[in-house]
Amino acid sequence: MVHVASSVLDPDLGDHVCLPFDGERERRTTTGLFTVNGLRRRTKVVIITHADSPERTRGWLAPLVPGLADAESAGQVEILDCAGTHFTGGRLDLERVYASLSDAHARARKHGQHGVYALIDASWGAGATGEQVAFEAATNELFGERWLAAVCQYDRGLFARDALDRASSVHPISPEQALLRFAGTSEPAGLRVWGDIDLTNRPAFASLLARLEKEPGEVVIDASELDFIDAGSARLLTVTAMARPRGATSVVCRDSIARVLRLIGADEFMTVRRVGDA
């Protein structure tokens, strides 16, 4: 099994990762490794800067990434200031972030690249934790189409412990917490989830469920590859089903997950289908 610490720098497209770090050296090393991995995967690497300008970033990144200058000329690596991707008139702008990343995806497709590998310096949000956490939660929906991988670098020297905990728990993936992957589905609308869900990433799961609450028609949660869900997160799923029309929510899952749902009385509000059932 791949150790989490290294795999967070080599994420799958669709992964949204919170990566805390200590000190400049660790930040630069991880940026270098991430870039090399993104290039190897033939994705468009987008480095979104805040603490350092793009020029300064280029200066320390070049020795860490062989062929960086050529890669930039060829459009394989882009180094952008977050002022241009995240903010409009000094205000955090979610729509602008969506547009910036979608545009990067369009450019990636034109260049025959497999998706976008984004590394973001999260220091843009230091001092505005509530807004940043809400933003990170809102962007989770971008990852459901699985063309984008993003690693958000959180400086432990800048973020207080509880601010960091809140930020990481709203990311589906972070070291030392349960690891969740997901994909949006359609016809019927819903979600496919795999990995684990517990208290540590429950807020991330909550942000995905929030979008399904108002979905008209049937919603199917395909949890057939979900290894574990804790009771509290199963309750959250049930509350979502309760907010929806009766009979409009179903879950496909393994026996162990079905047992948790039955124990908490969830099967009164959603159809629980075991994997392998007809």
Partner: peptide, 18 residues
């Protein structure tokens, strides 16, 4: 055992069930 769906943490009860 809880009656119907319950919102509060019931970790001990769940543990006793499994």
């Amino acid at each position: 055992p809880p009656a119907g769906f319950d919102f509060r943490g019931r970790g001990l009860w769940l543990t006793s069930m499994v």
